[in-house]
Design a protein around this nucleic acid. Structure first.
Lengths: 109, 109
DNA sequence: CACCTATTTGGCTATTTTGCCAAATACGCA
DNA sequence: TGCGTATTTGGCAAAATAGCCAAATAGGTG
């Protein structure tokens, strides 16, 4: 990998890494249904408010979500909704994994 | 997040996390062009053979790639080629990020 | 079997990531 | 200005990840 290729894949991996956490993935999924405040998201994921805020910062820094302050609160929304497309592939990988697991349990190929 | 939802998103994040590394992402991209041996991949990424092997194990454990031993060597290939679809969205996020950056530099909205 | 090539595994340190608490900041309102 | 609510930031300890070396394993061949 030459330096440019490496830089390219590091940048790409950065986007993916931002989604690579259960809480952040959940929030992306949730934001796919529309904007939410930090407080609402915190209720849903049941973690410390500061933890939620930091996760949101990670997603925002990656360019996946954006924020808008309105009055007292901050509304987050997806900036690139195409990230929702990840889910269908992820599901199919999980599906395949599950199928193989069953095959093994039942002594099939 | 109830326990089941949490388990679901942890599983989903696991797949994504496996791709969230420059070297692994590069290898997935490369495998999108066809199977490769560990040695060939190592030449391309220029890392220690054991490092490459471990990265491949991560991808394999996640169910993204599969291996097949033929004679002396091990051939890896994509198990779920849909992961290649990630790239187009990732590119569009990077593109959007770059655009915004330019806007900022030029004092536009 | 002895040797060579290809790959994986064990082990260890350095680095990064998480998540909590406490403190700071921002905003609206009396 | 002082107070209450919403959110971010600083700091830190625990956990997870990355990458290297050395050693082990597996296959092929003379």
């Amino acid at each position: 990998m030459n330096p440019q290729t490496k830089a390219l894949f590091t940048a790409r991996a950065g986007i993916i890494k931002a989604m690579a956490h259960p809480t952040r993935l959940f929030m992306v999924d949730e934001l796919g249904r529309g904007e939410q405040t930090v407080g609402r998201l915190q209720e849903m994921v049941q973690a410390d408010m500061s933890t939620v805020s930091k996760h949101l910062t990670v997603l925002k820094t990656a360019g996946i979500i954006q924020d808008e302050k309105r009055g007292n609160q901050v509304f987050y929304s997806l900036r690139c909704p195409c990230v929702l497309d990840f889910f269908s592939c992820v599901e199919s990988v999980l599906q395949t994994n599950a199928t193989i697991t069953l095959d093994l349990m039942e002594n099939r190929s």
